[in-house]
Simulated assay, not measured.
Amino acid sequence: MQLELRHLQAVCRIAEAGSLGLAARRLGVSQPALSAQLRRIERVAGGELFVRTRHGVEPTSLGEFVLGTARRVLLEMDALGAESRAFVTGRPLRLGCILLVLVDGLLEQTDLAMADQEVTVDLEHSATALLRMLGAGQYDAVAYGEVNEHEMPLPAGVLARTLIPKEPFCVRMSAGHPLAAREFVELADLADESWTTLVEDDDGGPEALVEACAKAGFVPSLRYRITDRTMRYGLIAAGRAISLSQPTAQPSEGTVLRPLAGSPITGRIRLAWNRSTVSAGQAALLYRAAARAYLATVDNNPFHRAWWDARPELHPVLE
């Protein structure tokens, strides 16, 4: 038996997952089948690649050596595929996004940064679905958010880069709300409010809100789940609900944005791409376009500009 790319991929998935069971699920095979395959790979390699521990499996010294080589080979093969596709004209780069503020300016920035590459942009409601479609090849790259410590698992063959490591969520409320005149709003003062969230808010936002509210001494009423931005803002302007919001959000008539005292809920923005269809150069251009789209929104709200300027370590790197 000779080692093939699928064998190298299996070894890498086992190391990334930390267990044979989880790796088997990600590869879409049974655990006994993956165990048998690993034994065949180990016979070719000349020894054990992993040892079992209380927490799963860990690579041996031989395993570390094989992993290093496997990762280099797989990266080279992915780069070969991506660079080859770059020579094919007429094929657009398919970009998927969830409802992030920067999406409003992202298409313009990709047109500027990637003038020789047509980019299509689709909006999805679910970050989980977005990454699943990326793994299935329906998208070449995606932009998505995560809240607090929530981390979205990446499909096999996908690379990711953090664009904005941290931004403080604020609250959108009616301009006539009793707290609207405050510079900062204490989360505990919102205990009696009704909240609106997205229909499929699976970026960790609802969980982060519930956890933060629990620390503030109450359980939030998540009454409305609405994707349409106009309808959501209408409810808020009427004083019927409030919502979490990115600090870069545009003003909306009848509503105001106020930062939460202590920044109990924060988000980050990430880009992920299929390394077999997106070259390193394309990924860098996409990152630059997304960074410029975000930076164009920092002045939407003065409180965020002050917060942002005080934290240069969080700024995207524009090579």
Results as ranks from 00 to 15, higher is better:
A141T: 05
T197Q: 08
L209E: 07
P220Q: 07
A160E: 08
R223K: 13
A188E: 10
P153C: 03
V210E: 13
Y224P: 00
R161V: 04
H177W: 14
P178G: 11
L154T: 01
P178D: 04
S194H: 11
E146Y: 02
K215N: 07
L134T: 05
D202G: 02
I164K: 00
D202M: 01
L154K: 00
M152K: 12
M173G: 01
E211I: 04
K215Q: 12
V147D: 03
A216E: 02
P178R: 12
M173N: 00
A181M: 15
L163S: 08
C213H: 06
A188M: 06
C213D: 05
D202V: 01
F169N: 00
F169S: 01
T197V: 15
L163P: 13
V158S: 00
R182T: 02
F184Q: 02
D203M: 14
L134P: 11
V210S: 12
P220C: 08
A208E: 09
V199A: 13
G137A: 09
A212S: 05
H177Q: 03
L179C: 06
E200A: 10
S221K: 11
P206W: 14
D192P: 09
Y139N: 01
A129V: 05
E200Y: 15
N148P: 11
D192V: 12
L159E: 13
R161H: 10
A181H: 14
L222G: 05
A175T: 02
C170N: 01
